[in-house]
Simulated assay, not measured.
Amino acid sequence: MHKLTALYSRSATADKQAIDKQMTKLNNYCEEKNIQKFKHYIDNHQSGANLDRPAIKELLQDLEAGKIDRIIVTNISRISRNLSGVAQIILCQIELNHAKLITLDRGEYRLDDYNPENGFFADLLTKIKSEL
């Protein structure tokens, strides 16, 4: 049985159209992949510079409570503009809780993956992991 799929959207501006576009793309992906059990987590008018956002906090709490098995975003910058922050989330929260992070523009992010598109990101995750 699948757990909940988290669909996360964020916009730094109060532009509702930006959120609507992300939600439409995420809903279309779920329809294409036959994902039926999902929940939208939305941070509108919230900066990606830090993680002090209501919806991302709720999402991470649900993840740690074992309710979520995958998180889907349109692109990695929706989670955070800080790549080391994203790497910490993947390493210390997403993978620790046996979940996946999927971006519509790049696919799944995992520590095990290394390819030219994810090269920098994979190197950063490996470095952070070795420092823990």
Rank of each mutant, 00 (worst) to 15 (best):
K3M: 14
K3F: 11
K3T: 09
L4I: 04
T5W: 05
A6W: 05
L7H: 05
S9F: 08
S9G: 06
T13P: 10
A14R: 14
A14S: 15
A14H: 11
K16D: 13
K16F: 10
Q17S: 15
A18K: 13
I19Q: 03
I19Y: 07
K21R: 15
Q22V: 02
Q22F: 06
L26A: 03
Y29T: 07
Y29R: 05
C30S: 03
E31H: 11
E32T: 09
K33T: 08
K33G: 07
K33F: 09
N34D: 12
N34V: 05
I35H: 02
Q36S: 10
K37P: 01
F38H: 12
F38V: 05
K39T: 07
Y41G: 01
I42E: 02
D43R: 02
N44V: 13
N44M: 13
N44Y: 07
H45F: 11
Q46H: 12
G48F: 09
A49R: 11
L51M: 13
L51I: 02
D52F: 09
R53A: 00
A55W: 06
A55H: 02
A55I: 06
K57N: 11
K57Q: 13
L59F: 00
L59K: 02
Q61V: 10
Q61E: 12
D62I: 01
E64P: 00
A65L: 09
A65F: 06
A65W: 03
K67Y: 04
D69K: 05
R70F: 00
R70S: 01
I71K: 04
I72P: 02
V73S: 00
T74S: 10
T74D: 04
T74G: 03
N75H: 13
N75L: 04
N75R: 11
I76A: 08
S77H: 10
S77M: 08
R78C: 07
I79W: 02
S80E: 04
S80I: 00
R81P: 05
R81L: 06
N82S: 08
S84K: 15
S84M: 14
S84P: 02
V86L: 02
V86W: 03
V86P: 03
V86E: 06
Q88H: 12
I89H: 01
I89K: 01
I90C: 07
I90F: 05
L91F: 02
C92V: 07
C92D: 15
C92N: 15
E95Y: 00
L96N: 10
L96E: 15
N97C: 10
N97V: 04
A99S: 01
A99L: 00
K100E: 09
K100Q: 09
K100F: 04
L101F: 00
L101V: 00
T103S: 08
T103F: 01
L104H: 00
L104C: 05
L104R: 01
D105R: 01
R106C: 08
G107N: 00
R110M: 06
R110G: 00
R110S: 15
L111W: 07
D113P: 02
Y114I: 11
Y114K: 12
N115E: 00
N118F: 11
G119R: 14
A122G: 08
D123M: 10
D123N: 14
L124Q: 08
K127N: 11
I128A: 05
K129R: 14
S130L: 11
S130T: 13
E131K: 12
L132H: 12
